[in-house]
Each structure stands twice: as C-alpha cells, then as structure tokens.
Design a protein around this nucleic acid. Structure first.
Length: 405
RNA sequence: GGUGGGAUAGCGAAGUGGCCAAACGCAUCAGACUGUAAAUCUGACGACUUAUGUCUUCGAAGGUUCGAAUCCUUCUCCCACCA
C-alpha cells in the first residue's frame, strides 16, 4: 500500500483532521525512514466496560496498526484516582488504586479484541503525573489562559448559563495535553467531543518544542435511543463483553435509520457496499428487518464468533417474532412453606421470581394485561393458583419464569 | 468576607397552609399497532393481598397549627454575583 492509499484509508470516516498536510507529511516521513508513527489514544479506566461507541475509535486505531504504526494506549489511571467532576452536578467518585488497576486489566482484555497487542504500547499516565510536584503543575498551567479554556464550547455554555465549572475541569484538558508531550504523540485520535482537548495537546507540544501532533476526530456513535451518544451512564449501549444474544437483541431494537451508522462506524462497511444495501431496502428488494438481522449477526459474530451469532438470531426469532419461549428461563423453586392449602397468589410468585419489585407493580402488570400463565392471560390480581412443575409465567415481552417444585 | 438564589419522586421542573402521593416534560414499564423495530396512540409510574382506606415521602432535625412540601428556628450542602 503506498502512502496515498494509506492516507485515504486512514482518513475515511473521520470528522476533523488537523491538518491534512501535516498528516501527509508525517506519513511520508515515516514511510521513508521506515519507522512507525505513534498514535495516541486515551482511555478512562473509571468506566471499564467497552462498548460499541469505543469500538469506533478502536477500529481506526487498528487500521493504523495494520498500516504498521504503533498505538500508544494511555490509561488515565492518575486522573481516575482524582475523579472528574465534569458535566453533571454529580461528582464522579475517585477510584482507589486497586480499583483502577483492576479496571485497567479488564480494559486491556477488551481492547485487545480489536487492537493488535504487538503494535500497542500501553502506558499509565500516573507514570509521569504522580512524581510531579505542585511547582511543576503551576509551571504547566502557565502555558494556558482562561480565555483559551473558555473557548471550549461546553465550558463557555456552562459559564454563560451560570453553571458550575470546577477548576479541576480546567486541569483535565491540560493533563491530557501533557500526556501527548510525554509520549511524543505523532497523531492523537478521539471522538468529536474531544476536539478541544486534542487541539490543546498540539499547542502544548509546540510550546514545549515538539512537532505538534496531528489530530483526528471520529463521529460519536448514537446509542440505542438514537439521540444521545452511546454511553454507559445513559444505559443506551452495547458492551463488547455482553452475551451474543444481548448484543443481537439490542442491535435489533435500533431504529432503521440508525442501523446504517452501526454498519459504517462499528463494522466499517465500505461506502459503496452500504449504498447498495440502502438501495436494496429502498426498492423493497430487501426487508429492513433482514438487514438489521445481518447487522445483529455481524456484531455478535465479531465478539463471539459465527456460531453464537447464528444461535442468537434464531433465539431472537423464536422469542420475539413467533412469541415462543426462550431457551433459558429463570426458575423459581417453590417449597411447601410458600403454599397455602396448596395454592399461592400470583402476586407473590411474581415478586419472588423477580418479575416485579413489589406487589403493587405486579398488580399493575396484571391489570394491564401483561401477565400470562401457560399462555393464558391472567386478569385478576387476586388470582390464586395451584402450582405445577414446569408452569410458565410470562410478564410482558421479556419476563419469563418457570415454576419448579 | 458580603449579597442574593437554591435543595421537591430516576432526571428536569411546578407547587408558598387544607382540593398534595404532589402538575407538567423526559426516562421507564405495560397494552394497541408492527418487523421485539422506530414513530404514533392508550394507560401506569411510593408502598401496603385496591381500600373513594392506611402508612412513609418534598435536604436534616426540631417547632407553630385541628392541619405543613408550603410558616418559624437551627443545621447541612450547592450555585451565582460582589470583594
């Protein structure tokens, strides 16, 4: 692959690139000197679950690696131990050293599902941040002005709206920028929300006499709701360690419009290939559900293999399309002590079996017509039943329970 | 240090003595419609074996009152502005 091809491939799907000229120059220089570029990527170990939103960036990193470059994967263990108050009023609670270490390990396991370990340099930023004294911090801070900080969109908005901004939040971008200096990054990758921080890395490198890093931002993947970016705190994510059937099921719940984003950003489907699929759906040649099934399968297969993906797809069709029973149904074992005259109230079964968190909730579900015993609708919350082994209680679309005596 | 504002259910946000288990929006759950879609519509959304019933909730603790989310006192926490 020559440099131009590589450039095109690497630039695909990116949003910002500062600057293309520099990037081209760096790629050429690296090729002629036969040395890899150092691609920096920062990870926050306070949320150790990697989801598809992260995969967007990891995919790109992998492309760099396939081009022979080195990924410098920075685990922000130092910053995690301080706790980032950014955004919401709720301060993120600082993690202990052990927690951070633990998270970092699981983080790496997940990341190497996508990245090539041989071309990855894992670094912890405590390595250079911990030994710093207050004097060093002050010197570092001197490089940036408040006006520069307020240029960040989210800061200026919050400042204008009389919302609190902690001083720590000002320090965070600075720390991140300093990481770039310490690892001598050639390129830094991040989501579009990271633009400011990445740019600050460039500035700081310049000030400190380094060649500034090229920065590349990638689109933020929308979560399952189709509106907000995928994030753990919003609960709209698909995690890479989730069971195949959950990955599949969640993928199926995505709207038709959104599924193309997943094809493109997570599965890296080529433009022309995708255009052909969209055309097929538009003309009616392919049913959108089948396309989504393909999406779900491919996602599940990526993290669990083809066999598991196929099984997930079949299970899904059985349970939801045909409304049959899933393979694994949680069991509730009833003992004689639970029964009165050989019967038991439907409400207590539901609460015991975890189908409802309170009697009131169980009652609600029943009056709303969500509950079935062996496929027969229950209308009366006061219903008492004589349990039989293997009896199936169903609540809504997802709640199942098998009685065991 | 000073001045002002604030703390209400998962979140946002009304409510300034009884009609408040607390409007509304979002989220959630259920039903209808479907392709488990999405969108839409309907309903539910503190608990209690559903009762025009009881109990626990409106930052915390006390108090006033027949009656308090609402008034008073103290406390805790948060924010803005001025210095």
């Amino acid at each position: 692959m020559n440099t131009n091809e590589q450039l095109d491939r690497l630039v695909a799907r990116s949003v910002d690139l500062h600057t293309r000229e520099e990037f081209e120059r760096k790629l050429k220089a690296a090729a002629s000197e036969n040395r890899p570029l150092r691609i920096k990527y920062g990870a926050d170990p306070s949320a150790p679950d990697i989801h598809l939103g992260h995969v967007v960036g990891l995919n790109k990193l992998r492309e760099f690696q396939d081009g022979g470059h080195t990924v410098v994967f920075i685990i922000g263990d130092f910053t995690a131990m301080i706790g980032d108050p950014s955004g919401k009023s709720q301060t993120r609670k600082p993690l202990s050293r052990d927690q951070v270490k633990e998270n970092a390990v699981s983080y790496q396991e997940q990341v190497f599902k996508i990245l090539d370990p041989d071309r990855t340099e894992v670094r912890y930023n405590s390595e250079w941040l911990s030994p710093m004294g207050f004097e060093d911090v002050i010197r570092l801070s001197a490089h940036v002005t408040v006006a520069q900080m307020l240029a960040r969109d989210d800061f200026s908005k919050r400042y204008g709206a009389n919302q609190p901004i902690s001083l720590v939040e000002f320090l965070y971008p600075l720390v991140q920028a300093y990481d770039s200096v310490m690892v001598k990054a050639d390129v830094e990758l991040g989501g579009t929300d990271q633009l400011f921080n990445l740019l600050l890395g460039r500035e700081l490198q310049k000030v400190m006499g380094q060649e500034p890093q090229v920065i590349m931002t990638l689109p933020l993947l929308e979560g399952l709701d189709g509106v907000n970016k995928m994030s753990k705190s919003l609960g709209n994510y698909i995690g890479v360690t989730e069971p195949a059937k959950d990955i599949f099921g969640k993928a199926m719940s995505v709207s038709d419009d959104l599924m193309w984003r997943y094809f493109s950003l997570v599965l890296c489907m080529r433009e022309d290939e995708m255009a052909a699929m969209q055309e097929a759906v538009a003309s009616g040649a392919r049913h959108p559900r089948d396309v989504k099934d393909e999406l779900g399968r491919k996602l599940a297969a990526r993290f669990h293999g083809e066999a598991a993906a196929a099984a997930a797809s079949e299970e899904f069709a059985r349970v939801f399309s045909k409304s049959e029973l899933p393979e694994d149904i949680p069991e509730l074992t009833l003992s004689a002590g639970d029964l009165e005259n050989g019967t038991i109230g439907i409400l207590s079964i539901m609460v015991k079996g975890g189908l409802a968190s309170s009697n009131s909730e169980a009652r609600r579900l029943i009056t709303q017509g969500a509950v079935k015993i062996n496929d027969e609708k229950v209308a009366d919350p006061k219903h008492f039943l004589t349990p039989a082994d293997g009896m199936i209680i169903r609540s809504g679309k997802r709640g199942f329970l098998r009685i065991k005596l």
